[in-house]
Design a protein around this nucleic acid. Structure first.
Length: 497
RNA sequence: GGUGGGUUCGUAUAACGGUUAGUACUCAGGAUUUUCAUUCCUGCAAUAGGAGUUCGAUUCUCCUACCCACUACCA
């Protein structure tokens, strides 16, 4: 959800300003490759209607070779590996970075040692002079290690005691003293891959990125990124850091576990991880993508008006970065359902009837499309999801085979059902127009004319028709199921209840 | 621990430094209805705490508290 929201805000901003939304796959961690994740991201965005202008072709594949439409290909960083090394070396030559030969074990040992003393080990201006790197080792030794070993990295040399002044489109002016920063690894000889920091800056420059809208977790790295742009002498993009999505109850950010525990999806689409655990998705749970997107857009942003329902094009028009909330937003599953309900009732009867077909099929039911149109028209205001249709209106497709005991005890009393049977006879003999208003009026005149208790009689009929004490209006049901079926159900009820 | 960010009803949010602090979701009542649902009406409920600036602070400044993120050869 958080990822989709970030993509959405990027998309909205890009489209609003006549720009392009580019999808780039940042897969520079060779140890964390997850099969299917890339396809999942693309399919999720497509479901949401957030279609990248660049980076993904019409078949939903990440573009690997440059073309007019996709001039910056390849868009997968693992396929761009060849281009990062020279930029890392450029920084070393300019004195902005250095080679570090400390092994992972050595650094871990230093961290453990510091932790034992209640401190934190940081690779920075204070410690780099005592570590094994191209700043401390003789040139000869550095050359030898570079040529003969593969366990080295390029680290950024953070300047000492300098204030980096930054601007964030959402948070405004931010200052950080460089002495609090550490010398981040930019490039690793072991797998010849950059880390996020280098790859991101290099690719954003090469791909002519003008705005970076990303999660708040990147805010602490912003000074490093500013320094990197400065070291390269490149114009930097503008940055916006979005607050996180928080769990509905308690503290902390939204996690997969919350969804499982509280019964709502946290993934746009159903997702099965490599361990075989499946997480439900909004799509599979029956949410409309428009509702999902609308709900996400309103989580941390508002239009400044009281309008709550926005289509994607409307969001593009209305979106504004200075209306984006600084604080984290707690996700509210109830509101998500409300959005779906609103979108469901905005759908046409035709569309809903079509969506209803597979639901009916799953219950072994087939019906005329015209009939479905009428059904859907009657029940759309009572449902949150299309799947609810069955629970609401199953009795319009088959007779009840049992009756709710509590409702039967409450309504099925002789003084009432004896009258109901008379009403049934009246319906059987009814010769007026076979449409709801006419039948409804006739029924009401008949019952009230005889001074019978309207509610009690109707509830008996409803019990016979639907098997319970709740449901649609009697006239609505009768018109739909027809005279014969009406009579059959009354007869069955006489015997069974 | 350090650094950065954040804080208005339970939740999402609105409010040129001047409002009876608004709206939506949820919840509770009520009205309508042949039941249920819908619809409509009403209600509950907030500026984290403390200083300061100001005629006046939800809004600006500082302090405290709490929450979050980061602190990897992950992104």
């Amino acid at each position: 959800m958080g990822g989709v929201r970030t993509a959405l805000y990027n998309y909205l901003y890009a489209k609003q300003n006549g720009g392009d939304f580019i999808l780039r796959i940042e897969d520079t961690d060779s140890h964390r490759f997850v099969p299917g994740a890339e396809e999942y991201i693309i399919e999720s965005l497509r479901w949401c209607g957030i279609v990248p202008d660049e980076g993904v072709d019409e078949n939903g594949k990440v573009v690997e070779t440059p073309s007019e439409r996709h001039p910056h290909a390849p868009y997968r960083q693992s396929q761009r590996r060849g281009i990062y090394r020279k930029y890392a070396e450029q920084l070393v030559e300019g004195g902005y970075a250095y080679y570090a030969f400390d092994s992972a074990e050595e650094l871990n040992a230093l961290r453990a040692e510091a932790e034992g003393a209640g401190q934190t080990f940081i690779y920075n201006h204070e410690t780099r002079g005592k570590l094994r790197n191209s700043l401390t080792l003789p040139a000869e030794e550095v050359r030898r290690l570079l040529a003969e070993t593969t366990d080295w990295t390029v680290r950024f040399k953070i300047p000492e005691n300098e204030t980096v002044e930054m601007d964030d489109m959402i948070r405004g002016h931010i200052e950080v003293n460089t002495s609090t920063l550490d010398d981040k690894v930019l490039w690793k000889r072991a797998d010849e891959l950059p880390t996020y920091h280098l790859a991101n800056i290099v690719d954003d420059h090469l791909m002519e990125i003008t705005e970076v809208i990303r999660g708040e977790e990147w805010l602490p790295s912003l000074p490093l990124h500013y320094l990197l742009y400065r070291a390269f002498g490149w114009e930097r993009p503008r940055f916006a850091h979005l607050s996180l999505l928080l769990k509905p109850v308690g503290n902390g950010k939204l996690s997969k576990r919350d969804g499982d525990k509280m019964g709502f999806p946290v993934f746009p689409l159903q997702w099965t991880n490599p361990e075989g655990e499946t997480s439900r998705g909004y799509r599979e749970d029956g949410y409309f993508p428009e509702a999902f997107v609308n709900m996400l857009a309103m989580l941390g942003w508002n239009p400044g008006t009281e309008q709550e329902i926005f289509s994607l094009p409307e969001l593009v028009k209305a979106f504004s970065m200075d209306k984006v909330q600084k604080a984290g937003a707690k996700f509210n599953p109830e509101k998500a359902k409300w959005y779906n309900k609103e979108y469901l009732r905005m759908k046409s009867d035709e569309e809903l009837a079509q969506l209803f077909v597979p639901v009916l099929a799953a219950h072994g039911v087939q019906a005329e499309f015209d009939y479905l149109l009428k059904v859907v028209h009657l029940i759309k205001e009572r449902a949150t999801f299309v799947a609810d249709f069955w629970d609401i209106a199953w009795y319009l497709f088959k007779a009840p085979d049992s009756y709710d005991e509590k409702d039967a005890a409450k309504f099925w009393k002789e003084e009432n059902y004896s009258l109901a049977f008379k009403v049934a006879d009246f319906v059987a003999a009814y010769g007026g127009a076979w449409e709801k208003p006419a039948l409804e009026t006739a029924l009401e005149e008949y019952i009230r004319g005889n001074e019978w208790p309207m509610g009690k009689v109707m509830n008996c009929i409803r019990l016979a028709l639907t098997g319970s004490g709740s449901g649609l209006g009697i006239a609505d049901i009768t018109i739909l199921i027809g005279k014969d079926e009406f009579a059959r159900r009354i007869e069955t009820a006489k015997i069974k209840i």
